[in-house]
Design a protein around this nucleic acid. Structure first.
Length: 491
RNA sequence: GGUACCUUGGCCGAGCGGUUAGGCACCGGUCUGCAAAACCGUUUACGGCGGUUCGAUUCCGCCAGGUACCUCCA
């Protein structure tokens, strides 16, 4: 099947037809978390967005190398390149080795991602494991004359760079505006200009994470790791770099400058940015203190949550909005997503039970193509989902005996549902009973419900209702159908 | 202040120069011992004011409101 995948490139501010550098292969780099705290709903957005991209590229035949880093060093409390390292601060406060902090939150991040059915990347490099590469990267920038050493630290000379290149091309800024709007620092700055950013920072005596370098005992600047690790694993030029919109400036802008400074050319062909999740219309973020961790969602323990929400509900909620739109969180919105998700899953389960007849009276042909067209249009997952809901209506009609489907179309419908729901959208099928649950268990439930059917036939409502009531209390959803029953474990 | 973006019906959320998004909620109906589910039907839309156009929610301008980035943040 031929695909004209179109992706929105932040660099051009337009949708562009995706053309990989190497036929059939894609290099994808995404900014991962700084592991000094639990992942919150905001972290789920890029993870799921780029998981969708990763899955889709794979499904349409590309061999993808997906690199998502772990930032475990160099990310300072406040920029202006002052302040304490985030990991180091956490370690000091909790009296732990920095690497204990890193390991602890990395493990928790992985657990949350697994729950959300986010596939692990091909490579997950740590900044702390690539100090040498980063030092080499700084050296190249210095050799090419785009950086300067000041007091043991190394800074990128933005003004000099901007005389030849456009610093701000990605985020649509220019240096003059930046200069006029950046607040003046207290005179003692080591930097020539407030716009300059750190490539290497000399460690202060109380700083616990530091490494030797040609310039000082210190640590790498935050922006450096992505440039160093991205090019190490994906090459001096690669296809796609993704991340949250809030990283556009300065982080990704600095990455471009660093790449050009070190390599003489840009590295990334397509820049993709997911939008933010908002809460009461305001960005959910650590600094605003209005974030809710993923664990709190899964367990329902947060004042703003009326109930727990399953990982798949969160995933579905995020996929119901386009990745470049903001999506506003509320308990009501999540409840709506949960019900919608259940509806889709119920249809999926019914699809497995449907029997074919000799003719088809619902619209099956074209579904696959419509879904692909939506995905090809800058990953329009909400449209894919709407098509799947349309198809679900047909499935329900068949299940009710109000429509029919022939064997060929049934096979096609099953294939399309599996492909898009499981493989591309990455939704786990939660029918309540996992596929490896023993047949004996299912048989026992079926037997109970058979007995209930017999009681009903005898108008023995007391027995019939007792069975339903007791099973419901155990967490089963019992539904009568026109010629029998269906059940699922709802929690 | 600079830059960019947004404003869709009760809620969430797509989309488009002229034809149904979809989900949730609500209401009515069918089905049902009851319930649930399912299905059918109905009702609320495109911030305001101008302009371009045969025709704009969709393009342009202005206004209002909001958000993001310009400090760490996915």
């Amino acid at each position: 099947m031929q695909h004209d995948l179109v992706l929105y490139n932040t660099l051009s501010r337009k949708k562009e037809v995706f053309k990989p550098i190497h036929e059939g292969r894609v290099g994808l780099y995404v900014c991962g978390p700084t592991v000094y705290g639990d992942a919150h709903l905001g972290h789920a957005r890029p993870a799921i967005t780029f998981d969708l991209l990763f899955r889709y590229l794979t499904q349409i035949g590309y061999k993808v190398r997906y690199v998502r880093n772990i930032t475990d060093v160099g990310h300072l409390e406040n920029d202006a390149d002052e302040g304490e390292d985030k990991i180091g601060k956490k370690a000091r406060l909790e009296q732990l080795e920095p690497m204990e902090v890193v390991q602890f939150y990395t493990n928790r991040y992985h657990n949350a991602m697994e729950a959300l059915n986010v596939l692990p990347p091909s490579i997950e490099p740590h900044a702390s494991g690539h100090i040498i590469e980063q030092i080499q990267f700084v050296q190249k920038i210095l050799d090419n004359g785009w950086g300067y050493v000041s007091n043991g630290s190394v800074y990128f000379d933005v003004e000099k760079y901007n005389k030849v290149h456009h610093y701000g091309k990605l985020s649509g800024r220019n240096v003059e505006d930046l200069l006029s709007t950046t607040r003046a620092l207290d005179g003692q700055s080591e930097k020539k200009s407030s716009m300059d950013f750190a490539l290497w920072k000399k460690a202060s005596p109380e700083h616990i994470m530091h490494w030797p370098s040609p310039w000082s005992e210190g640590f790498p600047g935050w922006h450096l790791e992505c440039s160093a690790m991205g090019t190490k694993y994906l090459g001096d030029e690669f296809d796609i770099h993704g991340g949250g919109m809030d990283l556009l400036f300065p982080h990704h802008e600095c990455e471009i400058a660093q790449s050009v400074g070190a390599l003489g050319h840009e590295t990334v062909h397509y820049w993709m940015h997911n939008n933010m999740i908002t809460i009461n219309g305001q960005k959910m973020g650590k600094s605003l203190g209005n974030f809710i961790t993923l664990e709190e969602f899964f367990e329902g323990k947060h004042p703003l949550l009326t109930q727990a929400f399953s990982p798949m509900t969160i995933r579905f909620f995020i996929l119901q909005a386009h990745y470049r739109s903001t999506v506003d969180f509320s308990s009501e919105a999540l409840q709506a997503s949960q019900k919608g998700y259940e509806r889709l899953m119920d249809a999926y389960a019914r699809l497995q039970r449907i029997t074919a007849t000799d003719s088809t009276t619902i619209d099956v042909q074209g579904l696959r193509q419509r879904c692909f067209e939506a995905m090809d249009d800058d990953l329009n997952s909400p449209i894919v989902i709407s098509h799947l809901f349309e198809a679900s209506k047909g499935i329900n009609l068949i299940s009710d005996g109000k429509a029919t489907i022939n064997p060929e179309d049934l096979k096609e419908l099953k294939n399309v549902f599996d492909l898009f729901i499981k493989d591309i959208l990455g939704l786990k099928i939660e029918t309540g009973v996992s596929e490896n649950t023993g047949d004996g268990y299912k048989g026992a439930i079926d037997l109970l419900l058979q007995i209930r059917m017999e009681a009903k036939a005898n108008k023995d409502w007391a027995t019939s209702d007792k069975i339903r009531k007791e099973l419901t209390a155990l967490g089963f959803d019992i539904k009568d159908t026109k010629d029998g029953f269906e059940w699922k474990l709802s929690r």
